[in-house]
C-alpha cells in the first residue's frame, strides 16, 4: 500500500475474566462473615452495652419475632406499597418528559430550566407542602417519592437520548425511517443502559424518601418501625429494621438488573 491510507487496527479480544461480581467468591463471603463474627465477639465480650449495640444473634431473634407477629410484614407492606406507587408514577412521568425533551428542542427549552430550578431542592423538604395540599393520608408520601424518582429518570433519559450517536440516526434515516421510527427503533433502545442507570438512582432515592417520610408522618412502615424502636430504645428491633432496608435496596437493584437483562435479550455488553 503506497497510497494515502489510514489504518485503524481494532482490538476485539477481551480478557476471559469473570464479571467483577463473581471474582474472589471466598473473599466476598468471608468479608461478611468476618464482620458478623467480630460483631458477635465484641458484644459477647460486653465491649459495648447491648442497648447501643445488641448482638447479631439477638437482632436475628428480633427479626424472627417481628416476622411471626406479622409486624414485619405490615410495615414492609406499607413501605413497599408507597415505594411502588411513588417510584412507578415518578419514573413513568420522568421517562415521558425525558423522551419528549430528548427528541424535541422546544420541549427541551421548556423542561430544562424548570428541571434545573427544582432538581436541587432536597425532596423531603416538599413533604409539609404536599401534606398541606394532599392531606395527611398516603397521597403526600407517595407524591414526595414520585417527585424524588422523577428527576433522575427525566434528566438521565433526556441526556441519554440527546447523546445517541447521530450516525445511528443518520443510518436509520437513510433507510427511510420516519421521525417516530427513529425515536422508537433507534433513540430509545440506544438509551436503555443509561435509562436503567437512572432508574437505579431513582429506586435508591425512593427508598431514602419512603423512610424519611415515614419518620416524619406515618403510623406504619419500616421507617416508622425504626423510629419507634429508637424511641423505646429497642435497639435490636431498630437494627432489624435497618437490615430489612438493606435487603430492600439490594432487591430493587437486582430486580432492575434482571429487567434490564431481559430487555437486552442477553445482549453481550462490550
Amino acid at each position: 500500500m503506497t497510497s494515502i491510507s489510514r489504518e485503524v487496527i481494532t482490538f476485539d479480544a477481551r480478557p476471559p475474566e469473570p464479571p467483577a461480581g463473581r471474582r474472589y467468591p471466598l473473599l466476598r463471603a468471608g468479608a461478611i462473615v468476618a464482620v458478623l463474627v467480630a460483631w458477635q465477639v465484641m458484644t459477647a465480650a460486653r465491649v459495648v452495652p447491648a442497648v447501643f449495640l445488641p448482638s447479631p444473634a439477638s437482632v436475628g431473634t428480633e427479626l424472627v419475632r417481628l416476622s411471626s407477629t406479622g409486624d414485619l410484614w405490615r410495615s414492609l407492606g406499607a413501605s413497599v406499597g408507597r415505594i411502588a406507587a411513588g417510584f412507578g408514577l415518578g419514573s413513568a412521568a420522568g421517562l415521558l418528559v425525558g423522551v419528549l425533551a430528548g427528541v424535541s428542542r422546544p420541549a427541551e427549552a421548556v423542561a430544562d430550566p424548570l428541571i434545573a430550578a427544582i432538581y436541587p431542592i432536597p425532596k423531603i423538604a416538599l413533604l409539609p407542602l404536599l401534606i398541606l395540599w394532599l392531606g395527611i393520608g398516603e397521597a403526600p408520601k407517595i407524591a414526595v417519592i414520585a417527585v424524588g424518582a422523577f428527576f433522575p429518570v427525566a434528566i438521565g433519559t433526556m441526556s441519554a437520548i440527546r447523546d445517541v450517536d447521530p450516525l445511528l440516526v443518520r443510518a436509520a434515516r437513510s433507510f427511510g425511517a420516519t421521525r417516530l421510527q427513529v425515536i422508537i427503533k433507534v433513540q430509545l433502545p440506544a438509551s436503555v443502559p443509561i435509562v436503567f442507570a437512572s432508574l437505579r438512582l431513582a429506586a435508591g432515592m425512593s427508598l431514602l424518601l419512603v423512610v424519611s417520610a415515614e419518620m416524619i408522618a406515618a403510623t406504619a412502615g419500616i421507617g416508622y418501625l425504626i423510629l419507634y424502636a429508637g424511641d423505646l430504645m429497642q435497639t435490636s428491633r431498630l437494627i432489624a429494621g435497618i437490615l430489612v432496608l438493606s435487603v430492600l435496596g439490594l432487591l430493587s437493584t437486582a430486580g432492575l438488573g434482571a429487567l434490564e437483562r431481559r430487555w437486552f435479550g442477553g445482549r453481550a455488553r462490550g
Binding site: D165, L167, R170, A171, S174, F175, G176, K185, V186, A190
Partner: peptide, 26 residues
C-alpha cells in the same frame, strides 16, 4: 442504501435484526 465507514450498526440488535432494519422500516 448507505454503507458507512463506521458501520453504524445497531448494537442492541442481533445480526439478523440489523439486516432486517430497512425492511422493518418499510
Amino acid at each position: 442504501a448507505l454503507v458507512f465507514q463506521e458501520f453504524a450498526l445497531f448494537e442492541w440488535r442481533t445480526v439478523l435484526q440489523n439486516v432486517q432494519f430497512g425492511l422493518e422500516v418499510r
